[in-house]
Nucleic acid binder design. Structure first.
Lengths: 124, 124
DNA sequence: GCGAAATGTTAGACAAGGCTAACAATCTGC
DNA sequence: GCAGATTGTTAGCCTTGTCTAACATTTCGC
């Protein structure tokens, strides 16, 4: 039973939804589409999957809410993202590249690696 | 025109094929299936796509060859993989976790980050 | 050198993640 | 408070990546 593999897309959506709610007060599909660089129907279909998987709740033509589970995932993702980002910056990477790379890397670091990243960023 | 996004699966296959050719003298679907943890038909279909994309050549019931383009990609991937792996090890990560994380991370590091990883591994 | 085992292929199903086209609802500025 | 703009949804298509079932070929042991 390997499984439990990270669903990167779900993590990115949930993280973004949390961020939109925080910064805009609500998460609307149009903003998600813009930020993710996909079309509105793609967002709609993906949101349906997230709802099916219990990460969000939504109603037709209404903005999106995170479930308890969604909030927990978003928090965990943000935490991982922060550590990877701080680590890359402390290595000397420019802010823009650090942000881009962090988004790719954050889904692939083990707990152990994350701990080392965190320690490195803190001590340097 | 964003595009040119890395095809992780293609990279993993090509890297593995190069490795199998190097270590076993040839790359056979059965070994690819084992190493990738997928079934034989999945490998067959993926190999067809790689052939379509000009990365490998193959003939029915024969082992697989990399094209010039495939070899170039394999070389580039191996190079990236090596750097990421050495970097993680030099950070103090255990070999097994380093190998696993490197496989995930190698597809997401920019040239710039790679250079920093390399420098860090060399100086420490 | 033949029959069984191993390997490879084909066919067909399915889910995810993407798109365009067409339509429906909501919001906004007079 | 209505018309037009914006936003959201639905339908339908496509590719990728995965599987199982069935069949074909090659290889190996004797």
């Amino acid at each position: 039973m390997r499984a439990a593999r990270r669903n990167e897309l779900a993590e990115d959506y949930v993280e973004l939804i949390a961020e939109l709610i925080h910064s805009h007060g609500e998460a609307r599909p149009v903003d998600i589409a813009t930020r993710m660089g996909v079309t509105a129907p793609t967002v709609a279909k993906t949101l349906d999957r997230l709802a099916r998987d219990g990460l969000i709740t939504r109603a037709k033509y209404r903005s999106i809410f995170l479930t308890e589970q969604g909030r927990a995932l978003a928090k965990e993702c943000r935490h991982r993202h922060e550590i990877v980002l701080r680590f890359l910056l402390s290595l000397g990477l420019d802010a823009e590249t650090a942000e881009r790379d962090a988004e790719g890397i954050e889904h692939h670091v083990s707990e152990r690696t994350l701990a080392l990243f965190s320690a490195f960023a803190n001590r340097s």
